[in-house]
Design a protein around this nucleic acid. Structure first.
Lengths: 215, 215
DNA sequence: GGGTGAACATGAAAAGTTCTCATATACTAG
DNA sequence: CTAGTATATGAGAACTTTTCATGTTCACCC
């Protein structure tokens, strides 16, 4: 705590037993996460096995436990990585486009979410709220909060409302969007277009009703 | 199908290895489900153990496998039981109250859902879509469909719209309601009132927008 | 009220998973 | 080049899931 080197701490609370220090091991950890993602896609969450992960990642089981305290932590880390990528992509996009109507911001965010669903292995199974952190892990609950907070900050500059009201509404919108898009991908592996459209409609409708059409 | 005794079939497709025939065993199966529900509430889904279930239910492990093919099936059966209870309660309520404004129907349904969350052990963890059938099991996907269908039938008599449009909208509404109420119970064990209110607001708003205010 | 076959109960043990740990190797700073 | 730390590894300890041979209980019939 009183450590001067505090800056070395990896941003988010680490569920890892040990943080990879050398580059080779960092790479290995990534491999394990990739393997987990692939396996979850192929076999589903509870057919997932530490031995399988290790085999697929081309490492010994022991290596896995070198960094992760247990199996759950692996999936949790995968979830965290997915969240980071998502938030990163959103920030990226928003930076590029500059201030627009929040209407378009919603579209952008949902589009990014769709892209990730389609291009990131395992994303549809464990993004930020599924199996693991919603059912099995509780420390990560704030994942969604992190996302909601960062979205709130963005919107706060454009809508003249108490921040707390914004945060609440965005939290609701986030939950609704996630649920509907999950439904869309459940119905069709590539995302049922009709449901996707409805998701956008519902979210925009809700936000418009709550905050008016003000730019 | 051409069996004259078709009435003996247990309504829903049975994920059970063997259907309990004698009353004592039927009772035992219920005990196992009760035990599972309690344990899921106490320890969470993945700390659940067949041995624990058996111990809690006061039976031998073998008895569990007498009826269930594997651990997942147990939780799946619990999910199915919860769904049945919910649909049963909804039908009950609607029968009692006779035709009303669909507005009130929505309220009733959400209220029943809330009651079950509060009074049925394990309901908040595995109702109809969580962990198991949404993530681990896919055969049960139609659970939600069953619910949606029966709600659609009810509403079809009151709203003058193509049935398919109704089914779609109700499916969306169902998903949204479920997601928001889950959020409410995640934030607060007794269900965050503010979020519950918002859930009702969102669902009604959506349905009203889609179908107009017609009685 | 005794016999018979199916349904059920049981727990030891086979099969499979998770996680540990003693041992061996690769890095890094000096 | 060398000590000290970070990693890598896989056999095996600990724990779970699932099977199965064996023993009971039940329902039905004579």
């Amino acid at each position: 705590m009183s450590d001067i080197q505090a800056a070395k701490v990896p941003a988010e609370a680490t569920p890892l037993r040990r943080q990879p220090v050398q580059q080779r091991s960092a790479k290995r950890v990534e491999q394990m996460l990739d393997a987990s993602a692939a396996l979850i896609d192929e076999l589903g969450y509870d057919a997932l096995t530490t031995t399988l992960i290790a085999k697929r990642a081309g490492v010994a089981v022991g290596s896995l436990y070198q960094f992760f305290p247990d199996k759950r932590a692996v999936v949790q880390a995968l979830t965290a990585r997915n969240l980071e990528r998502f938030v990163g992509a959103v920030n990226e996009r928003l930076k590029q486009l500059g201030p627009e109507h929040w209407w378009d911001v919603v579209d952008s965010i949902l589009d990014i979410y769709l892209d990730m669903h389609r291009s990131v292995p395992g994303f549809s199974k464990v993004h930020f709220g599924d199996i693991i952190d919603r059912q099995l892990l509780d420390e990560t609950r704030d994942n969604n909060a992190v996302l909601v907070d960062s979205l709130t900050d963005l919107v706060a500059t454009q809508v003249d409302r108490p921040v707390e009201d914004l945060r609440f509404a965005i939290g609701i919108a986030n939950e609704v969007a996630d649920a509907l898009l999950k439904l869309a991908f459940r119905k069709e592996p590539s995302g049922d277009e009709k449901i996707v459209a409805e998701a956008k409609y519902v979210v925009k409708g809700y936000l418009a009703a709550r905050f008016g059409e003000q730019s």
